[in-house]
Design a protein around this nucleic acid. Structure first.
Lengths: 345, 345
DNA sequence: TATCCTGATTGAGACGTTTCACGACCGGAG
DNA sequence: CTCCGGTCGTGAAACGTCTCAATCAGGATA
């Protein structure tokens, strides 16, 4: 009940507070027998170190912040798991924040994390504005950008080459013989979205097609509901042969729309998603998707931010870029292949 | 760069540190003109309050901890969103921890949260042991149990009546004319799982059937992979007519197994899931599922924990119990209904 | 003019750690 | 016996904020 401090522990063990602190932080400095006595007192009293005090004294917290635009998206929870893996190995807590694609919420979370004096922040910013990141750096917080290309050269980042991802997706659709292509994309102010679209257009160019042929539907949020809405729009009137969706949630939404309209996938409409979340394989029609190494992305980012704070001066900023790969499933197979209905793999 | 404190602000504004603190916390005590001057200094210097120091002084943090067994499960991210909604209204941060159904990780997170001196903890414990909760209370942390019935009478909890949920699911399957029923369940040491199974057996009893007829397959973890594995086992040999899965992830796994074995759903196998996550509607066959009000659960729990810490003495512990409801979709419709293939709703 | 009141501001302690310069002790070498 | 080196342990000074009793200015009242 009454909160007990290092002082009570010291009293009970018959040593000074300094010694207790040493047992906690540099046990090798204290003699075997004393150490044992202090340990006994700690567990007898149920002492728990007050992290605020430690942090106040030592200047920095044993926590790192992670800001993602949508915790509901399994891609980001996978990334979060990766972050947690390495963070907890290093004894750091992870404060997971959901910006919900809102700049305002992102702002609030950043303020909060700065107040907490976190070790570092991993962030997938909601937009391309460098300003929030600069403000953090200015306050001495190290930052790693997650899955977000940036113009800031002096910042660590872990990204995936989304241009290649877009290219893989659309090249595959073209190879399958689809002609009329559409894309459901998030706002192009978000770099990931921009690059995926660029890659898609590159694939068209490569096939000697006019990149302008790609009918892009832009949605405000990259979730299932948006995909469904975009699908409703796309499937009325003259519909495309194939749609590349900027993530799997949009693709799942589109798929639902297709089912509602009685449009058969992939016979009448091929779909390719992005992220290869676990649910992609379990969808109404198993989804072809561009896979990102989500967990690895998280782990790498956490390593970078921990390395940077360990050695702030001599740290060389790194940009790690992963290459995505295409996972082909039912939703994009050439109609001919469909005649013999065989399950995935 | 150099971290600036309340002291610099005071110097620049030509007031004492006490006044700056008052501007921050009780602005009404400070004269208009002074207040303005201090505010100016704050923004000019880019001052950010050091939460550790505040917390050290005031004894408790403006943060609450949330421990869930699986962040990859959309049900829990929905709950988390609900928690965040009310927490951020009250100016609290949420530290989201993933125990991954491991008692050891849960333990580590609890230690961490105690060190952080969080305001309160919302937890869906990995097992039924009351010990971790008791330890927290002993240390003066208020606890709200999430979606977990408990023998502890002096603890707030927000739960769903899973017995009713199980009953709804199995009664529905029986009404659809299915005879051979199976259930894929998590360990019955987890109360949620136990209650769902009890409800299922109650439904059998109610239909004058032997509750022992329910063939229960117990899996160690409640995720897609486990569902797939259980499905592989269940679909070889003489398979049941219908399966009730203890959550949607298991159901999606089972569905994948069915597709691989060429077993048609619902014609040859009906499936009912639990939680009604967003992906349930987008599955290979839209899933019938027992819906819990996930976001509301999170919001309510956060309100409880905040209320409890606001008034620790006079607080009466509450148990809030929600009632689940059945959402019927394709995966469990009577084969007869299937003849005219019409999309959901 | 002296007194009292009110509203605004101050300054000095905490809060629980960590850190670091310093002292105490002991055994061995000179 | 003294001195030295090393090992352990100590105690006090921070860290940045909040709180609260105390002070102060200035006007109103007697």
């Amino acid at each position: 009940m009454a909160t007990i401090s290092i002082r009570e522990v010291a009293a009970r063990a018959g040593v000074s507070v300094g010694t207790v602190s040493n047992v906690l932080n540099r046990p090798d400095l204290v003699a075997e027998s004393t150490r044992e006595r202090v340990r006994e007192a700690i567990s007898a009293l149920g002492f728990v170190r007050n992290e605020s005090a430690r942090q106040l004294r030592s200047g920095t917290a044993r926590a790192i912040g992670l800001i993602v635009p949508d915790v509901g998206n399994p891609f980001f929870t996978d990334v979060a798991k990766g972050v947690e893996d390495t963070a907890s190995e290093a004894g750091h807590a992870v404060i997971l924040c959901n910006s919900d694609e809102s700049a305002q919420r992102q702002e609030r979370h950043l303020d909060l994390l700065t107040e907490q004096r976190v070790h570092g922040v991993l962030i997938t910013p909601v937009d391309d504005s460098p300003e929030p990141v600069l403000r953090l750096r200015e306050r001495g917080v190290s930052v790693v950008l997650l899955d977000h290309a940036t113009a800031l050269s002096d910042t660590c980042s872990v990204t995936v080459d989304h241009r290649i991802g877009g290219e893989l997706a659309v090249r595959h659709l073209l190879e399958q013989g689809h002609r009329e292509l559409a894309m459901i994309n998030g706002p192009e102010s978000v770099t990931q979205c921009l690059h995926r679209a660029q890659g898609a257009r590159d694939a068209l160019r490569e096939a000697a097609r006019d990149p302008g042929d790609l009918h892009v539907v832009e949605v405000p949020a990259m979730n299932v509901a948006s995909g469904l809405a975009a699908g409703e729009r796309l499937l009325t009137g003259n519909r495309p042969d194939a749609v590349f969706c900027a993530n799997d949630l949009l693709a799942l939404g589109l798929l639902q729309a297709a089912v509602r309209h009685g449009v058969r996938v992939p016979h009448e409409l091929a779909i390719v998603g992005y992220d290869d979340i676990d649910f992609a394989a379990a969808a109404a029609v198993p989804l072809t998707s561009v896979r990102q190494p989500s967990r690895l992305i998280g782990r790498t980012a956490a390593e970078l931010v921990i390395a940077e704070t360990r050695d702030p001066g001599g740290h060389a900023h790194q940009r790690v870029v992963f290459t995505p790969e295409l996972v082909v499933r039912e939703s994009s197979r050439r109609p001919a292949d469909q005649l013999s209905p065989c399950p995935e793999r």
